[in-house]
């Protein structure tokens, strides 16, 4: 549904997006990760046609966003980072406006508004003017606007920003549900959201894609991925070091696999060793890897790593 080819955006001398290419198919939820100022919002603004790209192409549903902007925009529902809505309008008036702009009229419009009001929990504030709403409600009003025409492509710039934990949970569920039949891109810097909602994550830094894959694949890039933590009476670092690099924790040991290929077999090897030695196991678990560790390692400037 979304195809991005070698997208570049300059602001004056500064290059905000530097040759990004990827595609998103129907049924995919792509999480867009990256530090502040890495080019996430700029990329999304180019996909939605707000910024014209300096070079490169974006096509949505087969329509080039620069050449056929209206056809492309009709397919897109967009929640901007600012989540701005006209403050002098009521929630209902604003949704009616958004629906009318999407060509919805009469009964279809009433139905569409009822659907998004229910999905975004706006029933209690329908007749309130937007400038009197709390941040969470404002945010959801703008989200409702993005969903009103049941778009094929959903672009959400930090959809859970400013929401309370319950609302965050609801929005993630909503994204996952919509993602089953539509193409969704959302940006976030909350890493758990990648696990909670994404089928694929793209990490961008300084305008370039630095890593991508399923949350599982990304996590496997972590140094601790596949490591086994063992707490057992009689266990010694010396014996365990035969299996891999051992780190002594408080009364426990963490064994790191020598390389990624060995990771899958490590837990079995530890269990083997434990039974041979006759240690009394109090606890043992396998690390899945930490996304934030991967994120930090990829996106921190090189100087920090040295």
């Amino acid at each position: 549904m979304i195809r991005i080819d070698n997208l570049v955006k300059n602001f004056g001398a500064k290059r905000a997006v530097d040759g990004i290419s990827f595609t998103v198919a129907r049924g995919e939820v792509v999480g867009f990760l990256g530090p502040n100022g890495s080019g996430k919002s700029t990329t999304m603004r180019m996909i939605t046609g707000f910024y014209p790209p300096t070079s490169g192409r974006v096509s949505v549903g087969g329509h080039d966003v620069t050449e056929a902007p209206l056809a492309a925009k009709r397919l897109i529902g967009y929640l901007p980072e600012s989540a701005a809505a006209y403050p002098d309008m009521t929630v209902e008036g604003f949704l009616k406006f958004a629906a009318a702009m999407r060509g919805l009229e009469g009964a279809a419009r009433t139905k569409a508004i009822a659907r998004v009001v229910e999905r975004c929990f706006l029933g209690s504030v329908l007749r309130q003017s937007i400038d009197t709403l709390s941040k969470g409600y404002k945010h959801r009003t703008c989200l409702a606007q993005a969903l009103i025409h049941d778009p094929e492509v959903l672009i959400l710039d930090e959809p859970t920003d400013g929401l309370d934990p319950n609302q965050k949970h609801e929005v993630r569920n909503l994204i996952r549900e919509i993602g089953r039949s539509k193409a969704v891109i959302f940006s976030t810097h909350i890493l758990e959201e990648v696990d909670a909602a994404c089928t694929r994550a793209i990490i961008i830094d300084r305008g370039r894609i630095v890593a991508q894959g399923t949350p599982h694949e990304l996590r496997a890039m972590s140094a601790s991925a596949g490591a086994v933590t063992l707490q057992a009476q009689g266990a010694t670092a010396e014996r365990l070091s035969a299996l891999g690099k051992v780190e002594s924790l408080d009364g426990a040991f963490r064994i790191y696999p020598r390389d990624a290929s060995q990771a899958a077999a490590l837990a079995a090897a530890v269990i083997d060793l434990v039974s041979r030695e006759g240690w009394k196991v109090q606890g043992m678990y396998s690390e899945r890897g930490e996304l934030d560790e991967v994120f930090r390692r990829i996106t921190l400037p090189d100087t920090v790593q040295k």
């Binding site: 046609g49 707000f50 925009k73 901007p80 600012s82 006209y86 702009m101 999407r102």
Partner: peptide, 14 residues
């Protein structure tokens, strides 16, 4: 100022 321009111009209008 309010950022609604981004909303307005990403709706299907020229």
């Amino acid at each position: 100022r309010s950022g609604t321009i981004e909303l307005l111009l990403t709706l299907p209008v020229t």
